[in-house]
Write a protein that binds this DNA or RNA. Structure first.
Lengths: 368, 368
DNA sequence: ATAGCCTACTGAATCGATTAAGTAAAACGA
DNA sequence: TCGTTTTACTTAATCGATTCAGTAGGCTAT
């Protein structure tokens, strides 16, 4: 499929050189008219602009300028999966919002780079991205995408899953996943829950849905997932509950539908758990839905706690007890860190954002 | 602030020419190794890739390739306002999801282009965008951004607000705003409501919040806003209610907070409206909130109908009666239309997507 | 009057690739 | 064996700008 942007547009695009010829000056002068107006007389500048208007010249070609200047004028946001999934994930959207704010501040464009194209995991998009640096979001440890980013030798900021091994040159931003998760589980344990089920999202690339035994849990490749599971674990073990007795369901995707599947399986276990810990609000929403379908009231028959505190959590029915993290702030911080790197600053020490348990109405003491 | 992507990264980036020198072949051969593997022996290809690895060459520079090939490998999505607002608007996010799907299908990147940078309305971002075409979303009629897009002489698809005058070269996608709005208002009128208030979003750029009289209404610069207002009008007039008696509140921004402000003003009018028509679900959510704060039950004391049918509408409390439109489909269509244009196809006739009233629980017959 | 300085330009190299056209050697066909 | 393809490269022009190092002419200062 030949992609030819010139087709279908009336006149050909004019170039700087043609404008120069039209006015009767050198290309350098036209360039100066756009980039350093102080370098030429007001009069010639007018003439250049006038000729540009006549010829339909919209200003220096961004690609050519980018090549010459050695910068693209945009930052890339690399998302682990297909872009359309990113937009369906409220936490990712909030994160993008923050990054876009930072890009805007710096006058840079924002290029969204899919980590996966129509299902295929392919670093080609990383190699083809005309950007000055990357914000890498939600990557599995050791993912080949990270290798592709490193190979580009551009400044990069790793968010949420900074695999230690590659991180030398890269800035890092994360949140206190473990602390937040521990607080969530401790809250349930503190209410008296002892039979708790965990709704996790994918532990490693190419997940299959289902209960994940210790072997599968050992494979966990997403750093923040690992940390959250550790947080849950330390909380339940702190109360003398054996981790092996806590069922963990792995959802292949982070959407409510999968959360519902997880809940159906976990709540089918005998004796039935009195509480569910979901690793994201999206999954928690689905779990609530499934519980309702099974005739269980939340929080009467079942307590549910989420993670992320997306705006919907406050408005859901019942309002969701969850772990708050500031996604917009995280994106903003990541973006600003990257912009600072573009300005020549050295990578800073990893930034860790706080998390905080927000108790709403989806949790209560177990019945009886 | 000098943006220099080379700083802070260990080794300098290698170029194709250096790889060629390392292997002892011409640059053309290295280029072929990446772009037309059939043009050289397996053996030299290996050697090239090996040398590339040694030198840390990540493949042809996207900017240089873009210049030479005459295409940027990305499409631009132009949003009327600051990007961070776009991410806060669920309808826009769904639209982006659709566009991103189309971009993905075509192997193109997605560059988000702000129509406004830190509050300033500036077409500079349009001129600086290294893209092969634009999807223009939610623009006011006659906005200078559209002029800037046209000046770039790139294929463009105008979504939702296709100002007739500039549209010659541009493809167009919209939804049946008027029909949807009419259906919404007819639904209320059909339930017996005669005192109806309208919660609109901005009528023209640089809006001030407040009741908008006929003069202000005449200025409406957003095509879809105009069409929706016309739809509301034709429905109420059809039942013999004078449009002049219907208060219209203009919200300066499309967020629930503003919807709440609008509701507070409209519900302060004596006699109090028995129903509110909101031009978006975001505004409707805020209006419901405000009504509740005023001690009015929805739909008992007040009926509210929205527009957009964002996913939250089905889950809100009460579930919102609203006008459904398929935002993802709209984005997908717009994106595919643009991709087709890139492939050399001529602009098609404007596409119009259907809207449909979805009756949920926020509307009922007026009391008494 | 002349050195020195501005102002307003121009010339030419360069950014990092792609690709059409050309060429030398090897393989092939009869 | 000799002409013809084929294979595997190379040469060189080109994409559209930016920018450094001039330079010509006018102006100022002494």
């Amino acid at each position: 499929m030949g992609v030819n942007p010139a087709e279908g547009v009336r006149r050909r695009r004019a170039t700087l050189k043609e404008v120069a010829a039209e006015v009767g000056v050198s290309p350098a002068t036209v360039s100066n008219a756009y980039n350093r107006p102080d370098q030429l007389s007001e009069e010639s500048r007018e003439k250049v602009m006038e000729a540009a208007r006549r010829l339909g010249y919209a200003g220096p070609d961004p690609t050519a300028r980018g090549l010459r200047r050695g910068r693209a004028g945009a930052i890339g946001v690399l998302y682990a999966d297909r872009l359309s999934y990113a937009f369906a994930d409220p936490a990712a959207v909030l994160f993008f919002e923050g990054v876009s704010r930072a890009a805007e501040e710096a006058g840079l464009g924002l290029l969204l780079v899919p980590g996966s194209i129509s299902g295929r995991h392919d670093p080609e998009a990383v190699r083809a991205a005309a950007v000055d640096g990357f914000v890498v979001y939600c990557m599995a440890e050791g993912d080949q995408m990270i290798g592709a980013v490193r190979d580009r030798r551009l400044p990069a900021v790793l968010v949420d899953d900074p695999p230690e091994v590659f991180a030398e040159d890269m800035s890092r931003v994360g949140v206190d996943d473990e602390g937040g998760a521990r607080a969530a589980a401790e809250h349930l344990v503190g209410l008296g829950h002892r039979r708790i089920g965990i709704v996790s999202y994918e532990l490693a690339p190419q997940p299959v849905g289902g209960l994940a035994g210790p072997d599968r849990q050992a494979e966990v490749a997403f750093r923040s997932t690992r940390l959250r599971l550790e947080g849950y674990r330390s909380a339940v073990e702190g109360m003398g509950v054996a981790w092996e007795s806590v069922p963990v369901y792995e959802c292949p995707e982070n959407d409510p539908e999968e959360g519902a599947n997880a809940a159906r399986v976990l709540l089918g276990i005998d004796p039935r758990p009195t509480a569910l810990v979901a690793i994201s609000d999206q999954l928690a929403f689905g779990a609530i839905e499934a519980a309702r379908e099974m005739g269980l009231s939340v929080p009467g028959d079942l307590s549910i706690v989420g993670f992320d505190d997306v705006p919907e959590a406050a408005r859901s029915n019942p309002p969701l007890t969850t772990v708050h993290q500031d996604h917009v702030e995280k994106g903003l911080l990541a973006g600003r860190l990257l912009v600072a790197r573009l300005g020549g600053e050295e990578p800073e020490t990893p930034k860790m954002l706080r998390t905080r348990l927000v108790v709403r109405d989806s949790t209560a003491a177990p019945r009886g």
